[in-house]
Computed example of a mutant assay.
Amino acid sequence: MLQLTHPSTTLTPKFVSLQESYEQCRQITAECSKTFYMGTLLMPEAKRRAIWAIYVWCRRTDELVDGPQAKFTTESTLDHWESTLESLFSGHAKDNLDVAMVDTLERYELDIQPFRDMIDGQRMDLYRSRYTTFEELKLYCYRVAGTVGLMSTVVMGMDTEINASPWMCSNPASPPIPEAVSLGIANQLTNILRDVGEDARRGRIYLPLEDLELFDYTQEDLLKGVIDDRWRALMRFQIQRALKYYQEAESGISRLHPDARWPVWTALMLYRKILDVIVENDYDVFNRRAYVSKARKLLYLPQALVRSQIS
């Protein structure tokens, strides 16, 4: 007699609905990055949902080496995470948050390489706690943050009207790829300067050692939280470097789709403002966390709107 087998009920995992998955991504973004979240609220619904999904994937990747369970993370952990990434790009979710990410990948032509590069950035954190030169640090900044610029640009979209005029057809505008990377690097350098004290307590120094030597400031000084004229001069030097990358990023915003310019300008201006707060705090990033208050954020919204319309 032919034996009929019953279909297994365990082969297809039960996940939340697509709407619920995006809502979970929204909540995580709102809780973990208030400044970034404010910028996303200025986007059309479809774009902001996609950005929330990407943000959550990036945050989960970062938490593998910086989160509560980071001490258990190994190369094998990251290998498994990269394998999961490949599953996402194949349309297969592994958990509730992945449901939104799979949908985002279906809607937008995202390249897997920036995601892989970000995982490689986390690999650097597994075995490095110092960077000798800025070039070494720049590679790290690209991997953990410049990649976010590349991912986000695909969702933001290009301004299709740029090439509408006949005289522009032979000189098409290129996607703002270098500028997107510059904005990611600028944001990461800002994070590094804001979090010097927090990183030092974990035994990490991201400021290039060659820069410390340039200002006769030692690793021991940094780990002790010494604030003096040497430290202030070093921080001014680092802030100017970050500002240069913000300036490079600005030139690419005008090539984005019009509905993306205001949120990008808002995010850029608010994040750059953190550098001003560091100065206002007399460069004390050991005992005081530099942040932009909600009231000040709201003041920047109309300024960012004006910039988005004239730049």
Rank of each mutant, 00 (worst) to 15 (best):
Q238K: 07
S170W: 13
L212G: 02
F89S: 01
P114W: 07
T153C: 12
Y291L: 08
I310K: 11
L223R: 15
F237L: 03
V56R: 00
D259M: 04
A164C: 07
S152H: 06
N171D: 12
E82K: 09
N191T: 09
L207Y: 09
F115M: 08
D211C: 09
I274Q: 09
T218V: 02
R107M: 08
L126A: 08
L183P: 06
E75Q: 15
V181W: 04
R236V: 09
E213A: 15
T74G: 02
G149V: 06
T218P: 04
T190E: 03
A145M: 05
A267D: 02
P175V: 12
E45M: 08
R236N: 13
I51M: 09
Y131R: 11
I192E: 00
W262A: 08
H6M: 15
P176H: 04
E63M: 03
V144S: 02
I278F: 05
R261C: 00
K294F: 10
T147S: 10
A295V: 13
E135G: 13
K244Y: 11
Q309E: 04
R143V: 02
G67P: 05
S308G: 05
V196I: 15
M43Q: 09
M158E: 13
G197Q: 06
W52I: 00
L193A: 09
M235R: 03
L97W: 01
P175A: 15
P172N: 11
V99K: 00
R194A: 02
E20K: 05
P68H: 10
D216C: 11
E136N: 11
K294Q: 14
S152L: 12
A200Q: 03
R107F: 01
L105I: 10
T153K: 13
C169E: 14
L64C: 06
V102E: 00
I310R: 13
A200T: 10
T147W: 07
G225E: 02
V155W: 01
P172L: 14
I274P: 03
Y300I: 08
P176Y: 05
G39M: 02
N163K: 05
Y22M: 00
Q309R: 15
D211F: 14
P44D: 09
R307L: 12
G203N: 04
L183D: 07
T9S: 12
Y291Q: 11
L207W: 10
I119L: 11
L11Y: 10
L41R: 15
D259E: 06
R241Y: 04
D111R: 14
S87L: 12
E106F: 06
W81P: 01
T153I: 13
C141G: 01
Y245N: 01
L298I: 09
A290K: 08
A295C: 04
R289Y: 08
D120T: 08
S21Y: 00
P166C: 02
T10S: 14
T12I: 12
L88A: 02
E82L: 08
Q303S: 12
I253L: 06
R261Q: 06
P13C: 03
T132E: 15
A173L: 08
K294T: 13
E248K: 14
N163P: 07
A233R: 15
Q19N: 13
L214W: 08
E45S: 11
K138C: 12
L223I: 10
V154G: 05
R230C: 07
V144P: 04
P302A: 04
A186Q: 06
M156C: 14
D120R: 14
G197R: 04
R307M: 11
S17L: 07
S90L: 12
Q122R: 08
W231G: 01
